[in-house]
Amino acid sequence: MNDAMKKQYSIIVEFLGKALGPDYEVVLHDVDDHINSIVAIANGHVSHRSVGGPMTNFGLEVISEERYKKEDYKINYNGISKDQRILRSSTLFIKDEKDEIAGLLCINFDDRRYKALSENILKLCHPDKLVELNTSYDSSTIVDNAEERFYGSAAEEISSVLDKYLSENGIPSDRLSQDDRLHVVDILNQKGIFMVKGAVKEAAKQLACSEPTIYRYINKVNNE
């Protein structure tokens, strides 16, 4: 993303952040720098991120799968904050004069205050149990299947994927087999995490193997 685009869209980020209010986080990503991707952010308290933060798994997938060539934006999908809050997210694909991806303009809405207000209003005229039945949902399913997750670094995302895999399969961290490592690398690869500089080194560290081994696993899953 060139400097003129950064300046123009940074103003839009500031404007939208003030116009929409504190429950809406607005983020500008530069796709040329996956590690320090965030160049402007308003209401960063929503996802606990700041300028200099990395590209998300969703952004990496948009780039690697070239989704921007078929659509201009994606709206109303689930994103998950670092503290496991469910956000309603939408992303505009910013393209240059050659119609190539240059950046991402993202809006993440935290509806907790509105949900609490709605429940309190309903409780004025309905029993608490009825309100609970009509407003509750399985948040764990949404968290597990969310399209986008907001982490502070590639290390955090790799750690999250690994912890989930170990938990779901009842495997101690020091008992990972070759097949287990291959499966974790496959999950990370599908998320596009290896597009981030340093991700291979971090994966090797957390999976207790060498960097050449990670590259071998990546080649294997890409060729299957």
Score class of each variant (00 low, 15 high):
E14V: 01
Q206G: 07
L122I: 11
H183N: 14
P127A: 06
N2W: 15
N36E: 12
D72M: 06
I107R: 14
L60Q: 08
N57I: 02
D72Q: 07
I75D: 10
S153M: 05
N222W: 00
K205I: 07
Y77W: 06
K129T: 12
D72C: 01
E157A: 11
D99F: 04
V13E: 05
S50Y: 13
K123M: 14
L124F: 13
N222A: 07
D180H: 15
R149I: 01
K201C: 08
I187Q: 04
D110M: 14
D186Q: 07
K201Q: 08
N78H: 13
I101T: 05
A19K: 04
N2Q: 11
N120Q: 14
C106S: 14
S159H: 13
F194Q: 03
L87I: 03
E224L: 11
N189P: 04
A199N: 05
D174F: 13
E65W: 07
Y217N: 03
Y24C: 11
R181N: 03
I63Y: 14
T91A: 01
S50D: 06
R112M: 14
D111S: 11
I218V: 12
A203E: 07
L162V: 05
N76T: 10
L92Q: 00
A204G: 13
E156H: 15
L117K: 15
N169D: 12
R88C: 00
M5N: 06
E65I: 10
K197C: 00
R149P: 02
I38V: 15
G198I: 09
Q178N: 14
Y137S: 10
A19N: 04
A4I: 15
E66N: 08
D110S: 11
P212I: 03
D3V: 15
G17T: 08
I142D: 12
D33R: 12
L20T: 02
S118V: 02
K98H: 04
R67Q: 09
T91E: 06
L188Q: 02
Y165K: 01
P54I: 08
E148I: 05
M55S: 08
F58A: 10
S81E: 07
I158G: 12
L207M: 04
E156M: 03
I41R: 02
N78K: 12
T141W: 01
I187T: 09
S81W: 07
V184I: 12
V27A: 10
S167K: 09
I80T: 14
N134A: 09
K123Q: 09
D30C: 01
K70A: 13
Q178I: 14
L20Y: 04
L207R: 00
N108H: 05
P54Q: 05
Q178T: 15
I121G: 06
K7I: 07
K129D: 10
N36Q: 10
K201W: 06
N2E: 06
N36R: 13
K6W: 02
Y73F: 09
D186C: 04
K123S: 13
I86E: 08
K205G: 01
C209W: 01
E168M: 12
S167I: 02
R67D: 04
G17S: 11
A155T: 14
K18R: 06
Y73N: 11
A19Y: 00
F93Q: 00
Y165E: 01
E147V: 00
L105W: 09
L130Y: 15
A116I: 10
V46L: 02
D23G: 05
E14L: 01
Y114C: 13
K74G: 07
